[in-house]
């Protein structure tokens, strides 16, 4: 046996050994993460056991732990997420489309791009301060009292309540603030989804005489949609857990009503105008309510908090599952 072949044989075993060790190291890391998660989850489930019931889901907060419920916070969070989605999706996707499809690569777009990445890393409390000044107080400059516009339709009159300015501590202020917070993430995720569309698809569309808008509308957006939606939902599930900015803009923590007084679909049918009022009501949100319970002295509130955490987790997991579902559903249909 030549010397090179010999040393090859010697190192071969060592190389295999290294591979084996590395595999186990990686497995260990994975197991560590899972173990922590399991401990956390089972701890919470254990604490919440017996507390997470219909009474908890259908009542407002209370001075008595047994009577405390999550209704106001749950509806507050739902409204917050809905409005945040309504605000951030059009703006975020629009900005991403402009940057990817229309804008020429020049120094201005480069600066915007760098700033987007930086903004995605800004601590959420900073957005809270921004939201407080810009939306809750409107820099102390704007002051418009609320008004009611009455439209007479002959057989009936429709009253549309217009909110006053500034928005004050309303769901709208919270949603605008959270929208600012997640916009950079939404934009960057949408940009990545758009960039993943092969340029040959655009070329083929242009070559058939499609305008820029038609190419975007019929080819680019449908193809990028799963990627965009995944990014948006993940960003929203970050927003739903945010506490600091909501504390900053002064969301309330002890509320005995839901935004617009809507406690279920029946209320909307009975009074459709509540849908217009809800965004301009005061609100509380799940993480705030949980934080509030945790900091109360009575030990029983720890169980109430655990039940609240479970509700928040279920909401989060549902959203993430939706993201995964969308991704898989569309991916199996498209390939390049």
């Amino acid at each position: 046996m030549s010397s090179t072949a010999k040393s090859f044989q010697e190192t071969l075993a060592a190389r295999h050994r290294k591979g084996w060790w590395f595999e186990w190291l990686c497995l260990g890391s994975t197991l560590f993460g899972i173990a922590v998660l399991v401990v956390l989850l089972s701890g919470i489930v254990w604490q919440a056991f017996g507390w997470l019931d219909w009474q908890f889901l259908s009542s407002y907060d209370s001075r008595f732990p047994e009577k405390a419920g999550i209704l106001a916070a749950l509806w507050g969070s739902v409204w917050l997420i809905l409005l945040t989605a309504l605000i951030s999706i059009p703006i975020g996707v629009g900005a991403a489309l402009y940057l990817e499809e229309y804008a020429k690569a020049n120094w201005l777009t480069r600066i915007i791009q760098v700033n987007l990445s930086n903004l995605a890393g800004v601590p959420s409390i900073v957005y809270g301060i921004l939201g407080l000044t810009a939306f809750v107080r409107m820099f102390g400059l704007i002051r418009v009292p609320p008004a009611i516009v009455v439209i007479s339709l002959g057989f009936t009159t429709v009253e549309i309540p217009l909110p006053g300015l500034p928005f004050d501590r309303t769901v709208m202020s919270g949603a605008l603030t959270l929208s600012l917070l997640i916009l950079p993430v939404v934009i960057v995720a949408s940009q990545e989804a758009l960039r993943a569309i092969p340029s040959s698809l655009r070329d083929a569309s242009y070559a058939l005489g499609a305008t820029e808008w038609q190419t975007i509308r019929h080819q680019v957006l449908p193809a990028a949609l799963p990627g965009i939606l995944t990014g948006v939902i993940l960003a929203l599930s970050r927003a739903i857990g945010e506490t600091a900015p909501l504390v900053m803009i002064g969301a309330l923590t002890y509320l005995a009503f839901t935004p617009g007084g809507i406690e279920g679909p029946g209320d909307i049918l009975a009074d459709p105008q509540s849908l217009v009022r809800a965004p301009f009501d005061s609100f509380t949100a799940l993480p705030l309510q949980i934080f509030n319970w945790v900091s109360r002295p009575e030990p029983a509130y720890q169980h109430v908090a655990a039940a609240g955490i479970l509700v928040l987790l279920v909401l989060l997991l549902t959203m993430n599952a939706t993201a995964i579902f969308i991704r898989h559903r569309f991916r199996s249909r498209t390939r390049w």
Binding site: L201, A204, A207, L208, G209, T211, R333, T334, R335
Partner: peptide, 18 residues
């Protein structure tokens, strides 16, 4: 847009839309 309607193009790599 009008020009490209009059001048069709077939690419080297076939590019069917999904």
């Amino acid at each position: 847009v009008e020009l490209r309607k009059r001048v069709g193009m077939v690419f080297q790599k076939s590019t069917p839309f999904p």
